[in-house]
Amino acid sequence: MGLKSWSLKRSPWIFHVCTGSCNNCDIELLDCLTPKFDVERFGILLVGSIRHADALIVTGAVTRQAAPKLKYLWEQMPKPGLVIALGACGCSGGIFRDSYNIIGPVDRIIPVDVYVPGCPPKPEAIISGIVKGLAKL
């Protein structure tokens, strides 16, 4: 394990991007921060800029407008970094995969490390997804 991935494992900062989700995955992600789950205890923090982030969480089946921005975000992310596709939409396109305006799922645009299925995944599942991703590093 290199120094970089060693330091990554301690308190992963997360940047969240919505590429055409229905809100639920986003709200459940936010829920992880509130008193019941409180992931800040473990140093997991949502940050406002991708340049500060160790992990990128993508929700939603990627729409045509969002795809170039997703790619751009990934290019700006410091490497090594985790990419987590959240929800059925992020993993496979979900119920929206047949739409004319969807070019996702996420792994068609950028490489994905962890898939967290569910519609929406429960906060427990999200936390476990992040932990599994860290173990992979």
């Binding site: 929206f96 739409s99 929406p120």
Partner: peptide
């Protein structure tokens, strides 16, 4: 920016399935 073409997808779903689709307009 979040346009997913839900109204168009709905035309390819049965009446029962449309309910699950519209459920996912907004969480």
């Amino acid at each position: 920016w979040n346009h997913r073409g839900i109204e168009k997808i709905a035309e390819g779903k049965t009446y029962d399935q449309v309910i699950f689709l519209v459920e996912r307009i907004c969480g």
